[in-house]
């Protein structure tokens, strides 16, 4: 189709401007008031930071993602625990690189080694001093049943004679991978906990 440049256009340029101006005016007139915040009932700093979940899930998530470990290194399994927490196996990937020497700051006890009756009162006391909620991983054959030394006159045949154990890791000593697996199992266990 040929365009006749002399023919008058449908809208002159001024008319178009008028239409646009009307839209702007209408919006301006309609936007004089501030739109109220639907979450205004919340405190100012919480704005946009709220997720809804169950209390259980939330507490368990917080607890399982930062398990602080009690130093409890009676015997050989401690070497493998140290390997697991050093750079190669790197336990901190699971939120638990912090080793606590004080039981009051810890919520997980990894019992890495043989327990003797002479040491038993101390272990019991440490466990009692840990704040609730607390968990125990029995690491190694000695911690489970006394292992190689089960028949000995001075060895406690398993930590579960003294304290409740959540996860057992067999091996003499368990490899660091096994320990990490045990920690993940414990984390799953914590996730299922009912708090209320």
């Amino acid at each position: 189709m040929e365009i006749d440049i002399n023919e008058k256009q449908v809208y002159s340029s001024t008319e178009l401007n008028k239409v646009e101006a009307e839209t702007i005016e209408a919006l301006r007139m309609g936007s004089q008031q501030v739109i109220p915040d639907p979450d205004e009932w919340l405190a100012q700093e919480l704005k946009g930071n709220v997720l809804l979940t169950t209390v259980d899930f939330f507490l368990n998530w917080a607890r399982r993602s930062s398990l602080w470990t009690m130093l409890c290194f009676p015997a050989c399994c401690a070497m493998e625990f140290m390997s697991a927490s050093a750079s190669r196996f790197d336990l901190s990937r699971f939120g638990m690189e912090i080793l606590r020497a004080s039981p009051r700051q810890a919520d997980l006890m990894i019992t890495a080694g043989t327990l003797t009756w002479k040491m038993a009162p101390q272990i019991k006391r440490i466990y009692d001093q840990m704040a609730e909620p607390k968990w125990v991983i029995a690491m190694g054959a000695c911690a489970i049943t006394g292992g190689t030394f089960a028949q000995s006159y001075s060895v406690v045949p398993g930590y579960n004679h003294l304290i409740p154990v959540d996860v057992y890791v067999p091996g003499c000593p368990p490899r660091p991978e096994a320990l990490i697996h045990a920690i993940q199992m414990l984390q799953d266990k914590i996730a299922k906990r009912k708090n209320l």
Binding site: P74, G113, T114, T116, K118, T148, Q151, S152
Partner: peptide, 24 residues
């Protein structure tokens, strides 16, 4: 606090069975 009674324990084992105990 870590007295495991190894010297007594080995009296009931054969010579070869003692090698793993020495590891500990």
């Amino acid at each position: 606090y870590l007295h495991r009674g190894i010297e007594k324990l080995v009296e009931g084992r054969t010579y070869a069975q003692i090698i793993p105990i020495t590891d500990r």
